[in-house]
Amino acid sequence: MSPGSGLMMLGEITLGHYLALSGLLFLVGLAGVLLRRSLLIVMMSLELLLNAANLALVAAARFKGIPDPQVAVFFVITVAAAEVAVGLAILVAIFRLKKTTSAEDFAALKF
């Protein structure tokens, strides 16, 4: 047994490893979106969801040896930046009206 054989027993890193990590990250983010009340935290969890998708795309690009998925990731990052800007602007506008960022207090459109 050579040193570091403990790591060797885990097997070589495959595309499946990256996809599983991406799935787990998506789950963590989804739990945040579903369970948290603070809209700020919900938006941070949305970023985690986008990042999980990005990780899967980059792993696919590496696996297939093509750069196209990386271009998609580039667009996702751009759109995410725009989404955060607009989302936070809405949050600021809503905070001025209601003095809170908790999702429970924004139920005006609920039936």
């Binding site: 941070m44 970023e47 590496r62 990386q70 990731v73 580039f74 751009t78 930046a81 955060v84 936070l88």
Partner: peptide, 25 residues
């Protein structure tokens, strides 16, 4: 995963710009 350019973009855009926006708000 050998996506060095995206790693740089990730740090500049996400960890830099987007997070500054969050912290400002």
């Amino acid at each position: 995963l050998e996506a060095t350019f995206l790693a740089a973009v990730q740090v500049i855009v996400y960890a830099g710009a987007v997070m500054v926006l969050f912290l400002f708000v």
